[in-house]
Structure formats: structure tokens, C-alpha cells
């Protein structure tokens, strides 16, 4: 029996849209960027949006933020249309982290985070006791409390990005939208930030939407994946389902690249078959990895491997040759190809 996913959900989506047409209107000329965009964003979930450049991801974000309303269709937040909310109300519901770089280097981390309270403060922006408590809590959650007095000019890229996320958190909104929050960050920071977002979605019960180009991180952390591709409707589902359905292939137009269904990695499509490889699993994996990069070389029919000590035995034309490292094996093939 097939169970409908939507009927299993406890609650209503916090943002809901059907068949939007997105684009820009200038001087009576309509420039459509994406059509047939439907989605539901749920609280308590980390949703990743992926798609090639120019497919309309930023236009969709701007539509949700009401900075560039859709050409056709409406976006509902709960029961209300987003375009009808006033600025203050919208700011209390949606917070964003954008890609643009902030200058204001004299601002301290705490001042930046406190700016997130803007929609909640009075005309002069004075922080109340509650506001200050929220700022302190957010600094603690994002582990920025030790550097809260530092000026933005003194921060590393990773710390700066975390501070921007903290500012958005201080806005205390149910929905958090982040545009490529992990671009330009190192591996550790990438995972750290995504896991922080995941934790926030679960523990603070927020709806978090992240635009990312990082498939690996998305597969690792996302509850929901939205895929946008040229001339096609937005596809959504769990990353695992989308992988098995082959939808993720849509991220790679053309037929040069493919996604490895075993581990979700992007690889050059291999036209011919790789040699049969036997031995321990991880050694097999890395030998295959090396062979994939050298498909132009004359490869053998069979390779067997052992672990501890590492031995790679290549069977070629009734002969067997033993190598002690992958690089010597590849060098051997290269020599043979001359």
C-alpha cells in the first residue's frame, strides 16, 4: 500500500505556492525566468534548493521576500497572501542571509546580531531587556559569545557568515532563508553551518530554506530537496527519493557528467566498463576512483587488491604485476600507453 506523505504531516505548510510564474517586468516587457513553480515549506525541516545558475532560484527568493512579486500566482504564508503583509509583519516572519558582502567593519558582532531585532524595537532602535536576552541566547547558540566584542573587519569568512546567520536568528522569525550560506567556506565550516541549521530546524522548530550548489552537503543534511531546472517544474521530495528517482540527474544538464547513485558524488560519465576489482571495500573504492580519472589509458581486465599491506595485483594478458601504491599502478599504465 502506498502512503501519501502529505497526509502523514502533522501541520500545514508555512509557505505554500502553486503554479507560480516568476520573472521581471520592465517597461511593459515581461521577462519570464521560471514557470510552473509549486512548493510547500514546512516548519521543523531543513529544505535545500538546488539548480544551475540562472534558473530562477534568486528570483524565487525575491518573490518570497516580496521584493519582486511573481508575475502570476500568489504565495501564501499560512492563510495570508505574502504581498498583503506589511513590512514589519513580514520581517517578523521571515529572516534572510544573503550573498552580498557586508562592509561596516567597525560594527561589532553583538551590534550586528542586535540589528536583527530591528522589526521588534521602537523608533530609535533601543533594545529592551527581552531583546538583549534574545541577542545573548543567539550568540550562545551560534558559539559567537566569545568573540561578540570583535569588529566585523577582524573576523574570518566563516565567523562572519555565522554572525550573519546569528543576526537572522535574532530576528526571531519562524522562517529562515539563506542564499548560499556555505559558499567560500572550508569543509569544516560548511558542515558546521549546515548542522547548526539542521539543529535549529529541529529544536527551534523553524522552517529553513537554503539555496546551495553543494550536493554533498545537501544530501548529508537536507530533509527536503527542491530542484529547479530550465523549462521544467520545480521538483521536491526527500533527497534520497529524488536520488533513486533519478531526479537529481536534472542538476547536470547534458550527458558529460553523472551522479553516482551509491554515494551521491558527481563524476565524469564513464563510457566503457571498468575492470573487475576484488578485495576490501575501501581499497576497491579508491582504485576505482583513480581508474575513473584515467579512462584514456589501456586498462587491464582484472585487478585484485589486499589491505595491510596494500597490494594491487593487475592481471593483463596472462601476466600479473604487483604494485604497492595506486600511483605506481597509474604510472605503469601511462608508460604502457606510449
Amino acid at each position: 500500500m502506498e502512503t501519501n506523505l502529505d497526509s502523514l504531516r502533522q501541520e500545514q505548510p508555512c509557505i505554500h505556492a502553486r503554479n507560480l510564474v516568476l520573472g521581471y517586468e520592465n517597461d511593459r516587457q515581461i521577462n519570464t525566468v521560471a514557470a510552473d513553480v509549486s512548493f510547500d515549506l514546512y516548519r521543523g525541516e531543513l529544505t535545500c534548493m538546488m539548480g544551475p545558475n540562472g534558473v530562477g532560484k534568486s528570483t524565487l527568493l525575491k518573490a518570497i521576500l516580496n521584493q519582486n512579486p511573481p508575475i502570476k500566482g500568489t504565495i501564501l504564508m499560512g492563510k495570508k497572501e505574502i504581498g498583503l503583509l506589511d513590512d514589519q509583519e513580514r520581517a517578523k516572519t521571515i529572516a534572510v542571509v544573503l550573498t552580498e558582502k557586508i562592509r561596516s567593519g567597525l560594527m561589532t558582532v553583538r551590534e550586528l546580531v542586535a540589528l536583527g531585532r530591528t522589526p521588534h524595537t521602537g523608533w530609535l532602535g533601543h533594545l529592551s531587556k527581552t531583546d538583549n536576552e534574545i541577542v545573548e541566547r543567539v550568540l550562545k547558540v551560534t558559539h559567537l559569545d566569545l568573540i561578540s566584542g570583535k569588529k566585523l573587519a577582524e573576523l574570518s569568512d566563516g565567523q562572519r557568515q555565522k554572525a550573519m546567520i546569528a543576526r537572522a536568528l535574532a530576528q526571531d522569525s519562524g522562517i529562515l532563508i539563506l542564499d548560499e550560506p556555505t559558499a567560500h567556506l572550508d569543509l569544516t565550516n560548511r558542515f558546521e553551518i549546515m548542522h547548526l541549521l539542521k539543529k535549529l530546524a529541529k529544536e527551534a522548530h523553524k522552517a529553513i530554506l537554503v539555496v546551495t550548489h553543494d550536493l554533498e552537503v545537501a544530501m548529508e543534511t537536507a530533509d527536503q530537496l527542491w530542484i529547479m531546472s530550465h523549462q521544467e517544474p520545480l521538483v521536491s521530495g526527500s533527497p534520497e527519493d529524488l536520488m533513486l528517482e533519478g531526479q537529481i540527474q536534472k542538476l547536470l544538464p547534458g550527458n558529460k557528467w553523472e551522479i553516482d547513485a551509491d554515494n551521491g558524488k558527481i563524476m565524469l560519465k564513464t563510457p566503457s566498463v571498468l575492470p573487475e576489482i576484488t578485495g576490501p571495500k575501501h581499497v576497491r573504492h579508491w582504485v576505482r576512483n583513480a581508474l575513473r580519472k584515467n579512462m584514456d589509458l589501456p586498462l587491464p581486465e582484472k585487478i585484485s587488491t589486499t589491505d595491510n599491506p596494500l597490494e594491487i595485483i593487475v592481471y593483463k594478458a596472462q601476466k600479473s604485476i604487483t604494485f604497492s601504491s595506486i600511483s605506481t599502478m597509474i604510472r605503469f599504465f601511462k608508460k604502457e600507453s606510449f
Partner: peptide
């Protein structure tokens, strides 16, 4: 005097200021 708060929000640029409810 009545736009000090808005100018502080503008430190993060136009898009952020709008997202924080600044008119």
C-alpha cells in the same frame, strides 16, 4: 532623528534593510 534606526539597518545594504521591515 526619526530615521536613525533605518540608517542603522541600511549599514547592511538595501536588501537586508528591506528584509528587516525598513520602509
Amino acid at each position: 532623528l526619526f530615521s536613525i534606526k533605518s540608517y542603522n539597518a541600511m549599514l547592511l545594504g538595501e536588501a537586508y534593510a528591506k528584509s528587516m521591515g525598513i520602509n
